[in-house]
Every structure is written in C-alpha cells, then in structure tokens.
Design a protein around this nucleic acid. Sequence first.
DNA 1: TGTACATCAGTGAACGCGCGTTCACTGATGTAC
DNA 2: TGTACATCAGTGAACGCGCGTTCACTGATGTAC
Lengths: 218, 218
Amino acid sequence: MTATPKPKGRHHHGALRRALLDAVADIVLATGPDAVSLRECARRVGVSHSAAAPHFGDLRGLLTSFATEGNLRLAQAMRDAVAALPPDADARARLAATGQGYMAFARDNPAHFRLMFRTDLVNMADTAWQQALQASWAPLAEAMAGHVPGADGRALRARLTLAWAAVHGFCALRAEGAGGELWNPEDRAQEVADDLIALIVAACAMPDGGDERLPPLV
Amino acid sequence: MTATPKPKGRHHHGALRRALLDAVADIVLATGPDAVSLRECARRVGVSHSAAAPHFGDLRGLLTSFATEGNLRLAQAMRDAVAALPPDADARARLAATGQGYMAFARDNPAHFRLMFRTDLVNMADTAWQQALQASWAPLAEAMAGHVPGADGRALRARLTLAWAAVHGFCALRAEGAGGELWNPEDRAQEVADDLIALIVAACAMPDGGDERLPPLV
DNA sequence: TGTACATCAGTGAACGCGCGTTCACTGATGTAC
DNA sequence: TGTACATCAGTGAACGCGCGTTCACTGATGTAC
C-alpha cells in the first residue's frame, strides 16, 4: 500500500498521476501484472474510476508510463552505483558496480522490473518510452567499453550479451520465484549475486573463448 | 494457426485437449499472453465455449498444463542436444550442447517460453507442473557437474547461476524483442549465441574469480 | 449380425461480474479587475 | 481587499463487451448380449 489515497472530503487529489503509478506497483505485487486495470488503480487511490483517463489516456498509456519510469530508474540505479565508487576505482570495479546497480534496481523495484519488459503491454510507439529504453542501455555499454577497450564488434557484442543477459536473467528468474535452494535463503542469494558478477567481469576480460579454446561443437 | 479445428459437422473433436493447448500458443504469438481466455481458445478450435472445462477445469488449469508441457519440452530439447553429440564428446561439449538445446527450445517454442515462467498465471500447487519444473533443471545440473567436477557448493552454485541466467536472460530478452542491433539481423544473433555459450563454458572452467581476482568492490 | 443401452463429448442459453469508455455534471482553484 | 468568472480536476450514471461458470440437453461412441 504505497499509493497515496485521496484525502477524505477533498475534491482534488493533488498528485493523482503519481498515486496511480504507485497503485500499479501495489497491484503487481499483491496479485500480479494481469490484475492491473484502470478501475482497480482508481479504487486503490480512492478516486472515481474515470479520473485516470485525462492523465494517461487508457490502460496501455498508464502501463507505458510505468515502464518508462522503470527504465529511467534502472539507468539511474546503475549510474548511482558507479558514482558511489571511490574516485580511483578501475574499469573492472565500474563494470561490477553497474551490474550491482542493475540488481539493486530489480530488488528495490520488483513491480517495475516485472512489468517493464512486457512489450505486449506497452505502447512501443511512445517516444518517451523509447528514449528511456535507450537510456537504460547506456551505462552497461560505457562500463564495458572501459573494461575491454580493445574489444572489436563481435567480441564486444558477446561480452555485452553475457553481462546483460546473465544479470537480467538472474533478476528475472528470481522475480518469478525460480531457483529454489540454489538462491535461498536470502544471504545465499546475495553470495551468488556477488560471485556471479565476479565471474562475469573476469569472463569478459578473457581472451576469446577463454584460455582453452573450445573445439567446434559438431 | 496450428490448432486443429473441429471437423465440420462432427460432434466429437477427437483431440480437443491437444487442440486447446495449441490454441494457447497461437493466441500468445498473435496477441500476447494476456489475450488467452477459455472462450478465445474454444473459438479458435471451433468448439463451444464451455467445452474446455471438463479437460482443464479453468483457465489457470489450462495454462498450468501449457507450462508443464513447456518444461517437459525444454528438458527434452537439452537432452536431445546432448544425445546428438558424437559418443566421444567431452564434458565441455556436453555443457555447450545443453545450452544450445535451451536456446533451440526457446526458438522453436516461443509461446511456451513466454508463458512457462509466468508463475502468476500457473497453479503452483499442481504436482505435474512441479515435477516438470524439476525435470527441466536436471540436464544443466548434470552437464555442469561433469564440466567442473571439483567445484564445491559455493563455486558450483555460482557457475550454475551464470550458465542458467545468461542463457535464459538472452532468450527472454530476445523473446520480448529487446536487443536491437546488438542481436539483429538474425545471423548476428546466431553468432552472438555461439559466442555466449563459448564464454559461459570457458568462464565456468576458470579458477574462482578468474585469473585476476577482483578487488573488494567497496 | 443386430439391437439396447450406458457412457462419453460437446452444445447453447443464461447468469452475474469487472472492465473501458463516454458525457453531462459539480466542486475547487486561480486570475482579472 | 473583494468580487466575478474561467479553467481545472474529479464525479457518477450509463452503456456495451467479453469473460468464467453453471446446467439441462443432445449427438456420438462403445459395449453387452
């Protein structure tokens, strides 16, 4: 229950747009992404069911704004983690911090994380959403470029993919409750998260294919 | 349109259960997971809207069966990929093949892949679903144990997490249309997928933290 | 081989529900003079 | 400082829609004799 309800007896809510976005998060956490509706959001905020339309147009508009906010927060979380490093931190530490920022976002914004990758729910033509998506990509690209400055197109693509997919996959599977005893209890999950990032950072620094080149895979 | 419609003029469909599961896949691909309803499935199969209940109970039951089928197919795809290796293939090749089997499943069963991890849509108390989920985990655990036989609990957990999360994250992001030019056009995606698996296999073989140990990350 | 009957599989009308959307409205706020 | 009025923000009734669920039903199939 983080959505701010309308004060009793007041006609104007004052921050309805913000409150409706918070209500989306509440519903996602309480019931799941499919339970989000304009009427349920309005109900949680304590406002008439038709009050949302002027702010977001329709449900897709509301979810698009929610996803946009998620991408902006994600980008900020990664930048914050890098900014919190000591000034003399090296490129390795910056890449690791970027990954940790990604995980921190997923932990602190579980509802955003679960909805923002659902492209079927979003208006992909929305320019604000597109820009936020772009913005969320930049910190990883920068950190990786610093970590493996010599990587060419193909080697760089492989390393960007490894880092992004591994961190995202870990957060996504966790968000859906997967993993079982592999990632439970919570302090084990934290340990795994640290080790995962260390493995990624080290793997990205390897020569192509690692010290032992793989034989052709049939 | 893979769902088999009921023959005209026939009263019995003959394979309604199978056809309804296929209809789920059709709808997921055509519109998205949220568009799946019992009535829409029945409509696509050409059957009365109340015909599905005896087979699956309700929508959640249908989706649970669909997810169960997905996990079984996933396990089979990984086993098939390993079985297709030459008899003298080493543990590295077996781990790589397991990852390739996972990717092949996601490519060949995109609708299953998008729905089977949506725990909010599934009846998690269903024992068939639970068993299929277990079964889908075994091939990776076996392949990794063969690849890094000396790994203890913590090091093994980190490597299982890296392999699973990276391959899953790659497939999940691709399924949602993410990645942009990083993974497009299609032959570039195939190249990235091969490199990703090579990186994972090599990274799992590294000593802890890689050749250069990471400094503490603040 | 043929008939009777039990069982199975799907039908279609009815119900109540929550949804998104529309629209005339009203209360609250801010600005001009 | 006070009054008039325009604009803004939210209301609530009404509508039609697709949904899941129920239930008496009917056509098709299979089995017993």
